[in-house]
Amino acid sequence: MKYFAKKLAGLVATLLAVSFLVFAAFAVIPGDPATAMLGTEATPARVEELRARLGLNDPLIVRYARWAADFVRGDFGTSYRYNMTVKSMIWDKIPITLTLAGMSFVLIVLISVPVGILCAWHAQSRLDRTVMVVNQIIMAVPAFFSGILITLVFGLVFHFFTPGDYVSYHTSWSGFLGYLFFPAVAIALPKAAMAAKLLRTSVIAEKKLDYVRTAYSRGNRTKAVLYRHVLKNALIPVVTFLGMALADMVAGSIVIEQVFNIPGIGRILLTSISNRDYPVVQAVIVCIAFLVIFINFLVDMLYRWIDPRIALE
């Protein structure tokens, strides 16, 4: 419980720090939003009037406090570009990106855990060596490239899905999930390869430890030794990696959303940056940061559950 409270306090502190840094960064970036909003109609007097209306003349800390208070209440500001609330722009995009990351995560676990265990248990066999070579190749191919390959093979040749024909979850959940499956595979493959390799190494290292010998000396079956003793220990480094991978997938959704034409928060981030639409960019970055930090928090909790020694450190 103390561990939980400590981690929760850390979570809140990190959120505050990150949001302030993001806010401050946008305040010092050259380029005045008021000038940008007015475009060709910008006269010094009108710019000044708009700046006053937007509150841009106040000190940084005051603006931050105002913005943060609004943010907590769910008011993310108004887009400079589209004249609509930021919330309405990004709110229904978040589930898309999260679903994509979630699906990739499930795929990573489903692929890497069996492959890692199988290879470790038959280490240095022909099977293990073959899988590890293939693994190495998969690891080296970045997600956007495998995304293009998957679009070509499964989309254009086999017609398992129609590239570019995104189905919204408002229309059909099954169609939505079906469309996201292949992008999720593209994201999952290199990470699953890494996780499998990590798990393999970890299981091989654990297999040599004394407690495994003890487990055998009590008359355990090989499988019982593997699943009841080795696996939980071997998963400890893998969980760390998976946590980082999940956070990375949320933050790194930009590229794959572009390749598969998925209107998630990554897409919106990209367009807002080129439009200099700072309120949107700010809100998206802070949302992503929140998600990443929250995932890390969950991983810490999971870690504590797997490894009881953590509490002492």
Partner: peptide, 24 residues
């Protein structure tokens, strides 16, 4: 062998820390 191990023949080792599973 398994039927004997742990029931008829048991073993203890040098390093009790590493010989016990740390997460159980």
């Amino acid at each position: 062998l398994r039927a004997l191990q742990g029931s008829r023949i048991a073993m203890i080792f040098q390093e009790p820390m590493t010989s016990l599973n740390p997460v159980c």
